[in-house]
Nucleic acid binder design. Structure first.
Ligand SMILES: Nc1ccn([C@H]2C[C@H](O)[C@@H](COP(=O)(O)OP(=O)(O)OP(=O)(O)O)O2)c(=O)n1
Ligand SMILES: [Mg+2]
Length: 1237
DNA sequence: ATCCTCCCCTAC
DNA sequence: TAAGGTAGGGGAGGAT
């Protein structure tokens, strides 16, 4: 656009047609969001559901099916619509719009009650008029809105919920979705009604006549058969749309839960009764917009359906997915998108969220194990220098290696041992044990919103289908839903189409695996700082034992109180809670995401506490409230107890509520659930749990399986696939340096009654699964990791089943009976070698490790300088510089699956000022230290002293708490530093300082202004315990003096530069052999090299493209923009960026252009998010450059502050400038207009 | 009693 | 379009 042009131009240009949808999406996003905040639905009916379980599922457990499919009919049409999507959207938009009014209104109303509702507290009455006052309700069995939801609804509206039916006389009504014949008889004389009575009444704001909702045995309810039936009814078309909608809304079901399989459907729901639909639905489901989605209906159509129900089965399985059938009819399409595609496995894994979750978990466990070993060893020898390669562990410097491995985590030292010991010794001392369960709130969504602030507060979900894609018939699964989305009943695991039925305005954002990994590392790094012990649960979740940290805080507090009265108030807050809030604040600062923390004295309770902490908070479940807390929970609320057990409990024990189950004897529970499970439950009901944090157990199996997109046409293809899968497994075995002696082939075969193409696009649908195990014999001896051998064995097993390859829907290869490969061997790769080292070591102890990364820690003892110390450890920094090289290194280990990479610089920059300062201080320290080593870290007290932990605090001999604390902090710093070091800074400059310094500040009297001056966030500072405050202060001062932020560079220019370096991939990835570090030999190749490529998709779906995938470029841009939100963007960066894009367009062929366009769109989206208002006003010029660099990046205080307008205009100016260059290139290259079309 | 095999189940 | 993986806990039942 020319200069002036502006927006329109934009739309015109790059986003030509798609724009509409693209823009629409943007608008939508904003739109609804505005309202948001509260979401509506008051009844919230969220449903939940689930459950069901399935009883049936005859065979395979799965049945996912989306039943939605049913809606399929609708979807069908929708499908066609897409083309005109624009129009549609317009049309739909209109209607939506109207609905939005209602939506908003509701939302607003809901707002008021929203927060309060859940907690027992209550509240609010407003929406909740006590319409159920006087009612005594008992809920029987599984229900559509879950029992829990119904219970809340009942209570919220003044009713009484009875968990037991023992006194029938007291119960006025029984709510159920299904009754067994026996129960029917039993309840014959009672008022048995469907859940919709409660839901509809709540919506209507008045108690509706129960008779209209009377439960009739004949009616379907799903229940056992579940699946299908319900759907069928829905589908049937006749229900008017409106009715349908309302049903949906009400019923809401939800989908299956996240996890597993069988789900599905069921949810369905309750829909059995379409008819009723209550009288208006005044408020209640906001979501329901009638909208068009649905439509028509006929489910059928198309032949594919094979036999939908034909078979008699009740479950019949779902319906087929017409879109899939159509696509599968095209040979070329099949060749390109199903298991027969040459790079199917690679592409599949690259996009599989579940695969990523699994890999990450394994990597995190490994990192934690390494940290623990290190801590225990206490020091290790430092390897010292390893710089060269080292980067992080193996990976040397990898800068970023992608795997987490590159990163190093250090456990808290103080306790390292201490803890361990302490723990072991006093296990019983429960009193002392403090466990925290930390979990990000809607992790994928939260991470995605960091760069999309304009979507905050709106109903957002993460899924592969973006924007309007898929219309209303997308079977894309939702990985995570924002809390706003949950208000509509949307849950993880459900399909996008189901979600759209619940909330047509739902917004979708793409996966950003790289980002999740980075945040996770930051998260773990922070946790390590406070934990005595840590158990990696998942990327976004961990259990930590903070007993010693809490004890220390407690002790300090006591001390302080004595000293000064001023802080007495603090006493009211339990130190554990205080620590939890500190952790939350640190993670928030580091990632801009919310983490919730549950605290208690054992794992079981800490986990349950998290649930209450959840939206965004912390909750300490203390002994006195345990009984009350547990009684109303249901069995499946317990970790490890899922739907299957729930069903057993319901059927054989007559209840799923803990309060009721508490009456059962241990014997009964064991009889029904098995010995171990029964006892675990018995104890859990009483809040007892003796489990310890996961100790690093050796891996027992390595597997690989794919149950998606499996569609073979002949044995040849199946064989080819099996061999490729075998290569994958072999690569994974090598990666962990293990060999196996036994192989298990897992096969999923389409259930005879299931449609050829299941409801879920390319999903496996209802299947029968088969496993076959056989010994795996390698060449010489037994265990092997040879791909060829594995492939042959696997294929032999598959053939032995003699299944028609066309019927296969899933294949998996599991290798068990593992043993470590002999040391070396594979080790070859440098990179890997490093990693591996760990293994060999086992005994050797001695020298192993070199982790090299850079840091090694050695214990020093005391002495030193400071006081404290007891256990100090030295850290040897890695050679900074090496880093550069490292980057390139990359490592390609085998697949590169997503693995964690070290935290990259940008992430480092994103760290909160306080944390960053600590790091900086650490760097300074390092550089300062003569030898490279030597930092002190409180580590174990090596020989000298004894008590570790406890001592910890004490460590400092004197009373000075601060020291102790400090020690801790220091430690932390180190850890983080270690982690970041490799990548971070090139410049480590220097200077000074020392560590510890004992700073003696005492009181924490310091003004905010002063804190700001030091770069310390007053808010966070305020949350810190006194000792930590001191520490922070000391460090902050130090760093200021030392080398202030300056060196870090985060400041504008440098930072920006780095970022802009975009091509990170280039850099990082490695790919350039040339760059490879000298030392490192070429890595082995990954089976599937990662290509970071950006996704380039057709220009057409611009929107999607824009949001799709995470690619480095987008990430970099996001960070760049984010960084310069308050300061004017640097011209040089813009210039660099422009050159990069132009180069991109010129070189990459059409793809380069597409990519460039994609990047521009992304950039535009970001700018619109922050400075949309200034988009058009191009005229005012702002000087670029200068403003920004100024001072600090963060705090900027007052004075010459750059206004948002100036910053925004500068950004837009930069945008148009770059766009102008792009246009030229595009014109030349593609011809005509810019619009790429 | 213990262990082993062959599942199912659960979690993220 | 969509990407339903993966490892470990544990139970049932049989072999030892
Ligand atoms: N079946 C599942 C379960 C989880 N996840 C991913 C997406 C989640 O964001 C992340 C973490 O899982 P959680 O169970 O912690 O769910 P959330 O973090 O999304 O929500 P919550 O706030 O309830 O923790 O794992 C997934 O893709 N599929
Ligand atoms: Mg979470």
């Amino acid at each position: 656009m020319g200069p002036p042009l502006v927006s329109s131009g934009a739309s015109t240009d790059y986003f030509g047609d798609e724009d509409p949808s693209f823009l629409e999406a943007l608008n939508k996003a904003v739109f609804p969001g505005d309202l948001d905040d509260s979401m509506v639905v008051d009844s919230e009916v969220c449903i939940e559901e689930t459950t069901r379980a399935t009883s049936k599922r005859p065979r395979s457990p799965d049945d996912w099916e989306e039943e939605d499919v049913q809606s399929e009919g609708g979807s069908h049409q929708l499908e066609e619509i897409p083309p005109n999507y624009t129009d549609d959207s317009t049309i739909y938009g209109a209607s939506r719009f109207g609905e939005f009014g209602e939506y908003m209104r509701r939302k607003r109303a809901k707002l008021q009650i929203q927060n309060t509702e859940m907690d027992g507290e209550g509240q609010a009455s407003d929406s909740s008029r006590k319409i159920f006052r006087g009612l005594a309700i008992y809920i029987n069995g599984w229900t559509d809105p879950s029992v829990q939801d119904l219970r809340q609804l009942i209570i919220k509206h003044g009713g009484a919920y009875h968990a037991y039916l023992d006194k029938k006389a007291l119960v006025t009504h029984i709510i159920t979705c299904s009754l067994t014949p026996a129960k029917i008889r039993e309840f014959k004389h009672m008022k048995v009604v469907k859940p919709s009575w409660l839901v509809d009444s709540a919506k209507a704001g008045q108690l509706l006549p129960w008779q209209e909702f009377k439960y009739k045995p004949g009616e379907r309810l799903e229940d056992s058969q579940g699946k299908k039936a319900p759907q069928a009814s829905l589908l049937n078309g006749f229900v008017s749309q409106r009715q349908r909608e309302s049903q949906v809304a009400e019923a809401v079901e939800s989908a299956p839960i996240g996890a597993s399989g069988s789900k599905t459907q069921q949810p369905e729901e309750s829909i059995p009764e379409p008819p009723h639909t209550p009288p208006r639905i005044p408020r209640s489901k906001p979501p329901l917009f009638p909208k068009a989605p649905t439509s028509p209906t006929s489910p059928s159509h198309i032949p594919p359906t094979t036999d939908p129900t034909s078979k008699s089965n009740p479950y019949a399985s779902s319906k087929s997915n017409p879109n899939a059938s159509r696509a599968m009819a095209n040979p070329a399409w099949r060749q390109a998108h199903t298991s027969v595609a040459p790079d199917f496995i690679e592409g599949y894994y690259k996009h599989s969220r579940l695969h990523h979750l699994s890999i990450w978990k394994a990597e995190l466990k490994e990192l934690v194990a390494e940290a623990q070993e290190r801590a225990e060893k206490g020091l290790m020898e430092g390897v010292d220098s390893e710089e060269g390669e080292g980067g992080g562990k193996k990976v040397g410097g990898g800068i970023d290696d992608y795997t987490m491995r590159g990163a190093e985590l250090v456990l808290v030292s103080p306790k390292g041992k201490g803890k361990a010991k302490a723990r072991d010794l006093d296990e019983d001392v429960e009193g002392e044990r403090v466990i925290m369960h930390c979990d990000f709130d809607c992790f994928f969504v939260s991470a995605g919103l960091v760069d999309r602030p304009h979507l905050r507060g709106k109903p957002v979900v993460v899924c592969h289908s973006q924007g309007a894609q898929g219309g209303m018939s997308s079977t894309s699964e939702i990985a995570s839903a924002s809390y706003e989305a949950r208000e509509f009943g949307i849950k993880g695991g459900m399909s996008l189409q189901q979600a759209r039925k619940l909330c047509p305005g739902i917004l979708t954002i793409p996966y950003e695996f790289e980002k999740y990994k980075q945040y996770s590392l930051l998260f773990y790094t922070i946790l390590m700082t406070h934990a005595d012990d840590l158990q990696a649960v998942s990327v976004d979740e961990a259990l930590i034992d903070v007993s010693s940290s809490v004890a220390r805080l407690k002790a300090n507090r006591a001390r302080i109180q004595q000293q000064s009265t001023s802080e007495s108030e603090l006493a009211s807050v339990h130190p554990a809670k205080e620590l939890a809030e500190v952790i939350r604040a640190q993670v928030r600062k580091a990632t801009s995401c919310e983490v919730s923390i549950g605290i208690s004295h054992n794992i079981l309770l800490a986990r349950l506490a998290t649930r209450r902490a959840k939206p965004s908070g912390s909750y300490h479940l203390l002994p006195p409230s345990i009984p009350t807390f547990l009684a109303p929970l249901e069995i499946n609320d317990l970790h490890g107890f899922g739907r299957s057990i729930r069903q057993k409990a319901e059927e054989k024990l007559g209840s799923v509520v803990l309060g009721e189950l508490a009456l059962k004897s241990k014997g009964v529970l064991c009889e029904v659930l098995g010995k171990g499970t029964g006892e675990t439950l018995y104890n859990a009901i009483r809040g007892v749990d003796h489990k310890k944090l996961d100790s690093n157990k050796p891996r027992k199996s390595v597997s690989c399986e794919i149950n998606y997109g499996i569609r073979f046409e002949g044995n040849k293809q199946a064989e080819e696939f099996v061999y490729r899968l075998a290569e994958e497994v072999a690569a994974r075995l090598d990666k962990v340096e293990m060999l196996g002696k036994s192989l298990i082939l897992k096969v999923m075969k389409r259930d005879a009654t299931a449609p050829v193409e299941p409801a879920k696009f390319l999903g496996h649908g209802p299947c029968d699964t088969f496993n076959k195990q056989t010994p795996l014999i390698g060449p010489g001896g037994r265990a092997t990791s040879d791909a060829k051998v594995i492939g042959e064995v696997a294929w032999r097993l598959l053939k032995s089943f003699d299944f028609d390859p066309v019927e296969l829907r899933g294949v998996g290869i599991h290798v068990t009976k593992l043993e470590k490969s002999s040391g070396v061997e594979v080790t070859m790769q440098p990179g890997q070698a490093k990693l591996s080292f760990k293994v060999p070591i086992v005994d050797g102890g001695g020298g192993d490790r070199q982790e090299g990364p850079s840091i090694s820690v050695q214990p020093i003892h005391g002495a030193g300088g400071d006081d404290e110390d007891d256990d100090v450890v030295e850290i040897i920094p890695q050679p900074p510089k090496a880093q550069e090289i490292p980057e390139t290194l990359e490592i390609p280990t085998h697949l590169d699956l997503p693995s964690f990479s070290q935290v990259d610089k940008s992430v480092f920059d994103a760290l909160p000022a306080d944390l960053r300062q600590e790091l900086e201080a650490e760097y300074a320290r390092r550089s300062a230290s003569p030898a490279p080593h030597l930092f002190k870290v409180p580590a174990l007290p090596t020989h000298h002293h004894q008590q570790p932990q406890t001592a910890g605090p004490s460590r400092l001999s004197p009373p000075k708490p601060k020291l102790m604390v400090k020690g801790t902090t220091t430690t932390n710093v180190k850890r983080i530093t270690q982690q970041l070091a490799p990548r971070s800074r090139p410049s480590i400059s220097p200077t000074k300082t020392k560590l510890f310094v004992g700073k003696r500040e005492n009181g924490l009297k310091i003004s905010d202004a002063e804190l700001l001056k030091l770069g310390v966030d007053p808010d966070v500072f305020g949350l810190l315990p006194v000792d930590l405050q001191r520490e922070q202060l000391a460090i902050a001062r130090q760093s200021k003096g030392g080398f202030g932020l300056g060196l870090t560079d985060n400041n504008s220019v440098n930072t920006a530069h780095q970022k802009i370096i975009i091509k990170p991939r280039n850099r990082r990835s490695t790919r350039s052999p040339s760059i490879t570090h000298p030392r490192r030999p070429p890595p082995p190749q990954a089976l599937y090299p990662p290509l970071p490529t950006i996704k380039q998709r057709g220009p057409n779906k611009g929107e999607k493209l824009v949001f799709c995938e995470t690619d480095d470029v987008q990430r970099v841009i996001g960070e760049w923009v984010e960084r310069c939100r308050e300061s004017v963007v640097n011209e040089r960066d813009v210039e660099y960026f422009g050159r990069y894009l132009v180069g991109c367009c010129e070189s990459g062929g059409g793809r380069g252009v597409e990519r460039g366009v994609e990047v521009m769109k992304w950039w535009m989206v970001l700018l619109r998010g922050y400075w949309g208002v200034w988009e058009g006003g191009g005229e005012g010029d702002v000087e670029m450059g200068e403003g920004g660099k100024g001072r600090d990046g963060e705090g900027r205080d007052g004075e010459g502050r750059v206004t948002s307008e100036i910053v925004g205009r500068a950004w837009w100016k930069a945008f148009w400038e770059v766009k102008g260059r792009m246009d030229e290139v595009v014109r030349k290259k593609i011809g005509g207009s810019l619009s790429l079309k």
